[in-house]
Nucleic acid binder design. Structure first.
Lengths: 184, 184
DNA sequence: ACACACATGTAATTGGTTACATGATTTC
DNA sequence: GAAATCATGTAACCAATTACATGTGTGT
């Protein structure tokens, strides 16, 4: 049976740590895979219900007295098997969509200042991203010593850092070229 | 009025070269922006009809005797204005989705050979992509000398090449780490 | 004769976003 | 008392993919 990518994200997140709710899954996404994988609540909550109906995860109310309305989920053996099955099949290439590059590609139709502004935005975003990722690297190492997932998390992190650094280097030379053509 | 991203891709492609059909737009995408922007016929054809109905492009049957059924479109002044307007607004960040990285992130749930296979696939794809982009760079320079779009196209190309090279470098070290952990 | 590239389109479905709706708890 | 965070969900909408359907022209 084919499932949405969101379903596997949820299964994977529950495999790392059981007893997570929709809310904490979203938070976990934000603090880990966010720079290469986005998810919204509107997708997570229905997916949790669907996976529970299919027997891949089980729900139970949280035991906390202070936050009683929280629904926590955990993987069933079937859920874990489903995750492993998915992991083993070749990854699919998600359709690329980079509006920044598209606007740059059509840059000649606008004033040079337009493309320069996009480039500065891009640079700013990537600087912030790099700072976030470097922080995350430090935190991840600190809080997950001995965690068997750590080496995999580090691989995705070093990928993100390398890509971001390369993007920043490129943006410097791109800005030099565009600024030169604009007023040099 | 907000339009789909596909609409702007179409307007942009027609701004570069008028008298293009759905088919040739798709081909142009394949030979230029494909590595950062995907489009399917199922999206392009309806978009052309919609844009024509809105007066942003005009259709006319191709004059070629050999291919009479081809519908060719060109920008109207309104269409060009619409493109410029879009170019001037800040680019939006498309939701990232990288299934390769997601499988790697959850790699600990599968046998090490699974992640190694994904990494090799990734490497192979990036090698092919790099070759394509480098070829494209040569071709673009050769066939577009003096084309005022060239510098913008080159910027997107050098970005793609830099990112791909960085991905390949990373994949080498990632494979070394995983292979070492697997059988070292 | 066959295969491939040219060429255009539609329909069903899915996947996902966004806005909306609600309310408890914690912190200042 | 207000604001922020915790927490869960639904409904409307839209963007896009995929499969389907059809037919011509060209080259081998």
């Amino acid at each position: 049976m084919q499932r949405s990518q969101t379903a596997y994200l949820v299964l994977g997140m529950l495999s790392i740590e059981p007893n997570r709710s929709g809310y904490t899954i979203r938070k976990a996404v934000e603090g880990s895979v966010n720079y290469f994988w986005g998810e919204s609540y509107g997708q997570i909550y229905p997916t949790l219900k669907r996976l529970a109906a299919q027997g891949l995860i089980v729900a139970r109310a949280s035991t906390s007295a202070t936050r009683p309305r929280r629904q926590e989920y955990s993987l069933t053996p079937a859920g874990h098997a489903c995750l492993e099955e998915w992991l083993a099949v070749p990854y699919r290439d998600d359709r690329p969509r980079n509006e920044f590059l598209l606007k740059l590609f059509f840059g000649r139709e606008a004033a040079p200042s337009v493309s320069i502004r996009h480039l500065r935005d891009f640079q700013e975003k990537n600087r912030r991203l790099l700072a976030t990722l470097v922080d995350l690297e430090t935190l991840a190492r600190k809080h997950n010593a001995g965690n068997p997932n750590l080496s995999f998390w580090m691989l995705t992190l070093t990928f993100g850092i390398a890509q971001t650094r390369s993007a920043l280097e490129w943006s410097e030379s791109a800005l030099a070229i565009l600024s030169g053509a604009n007023n040099g």
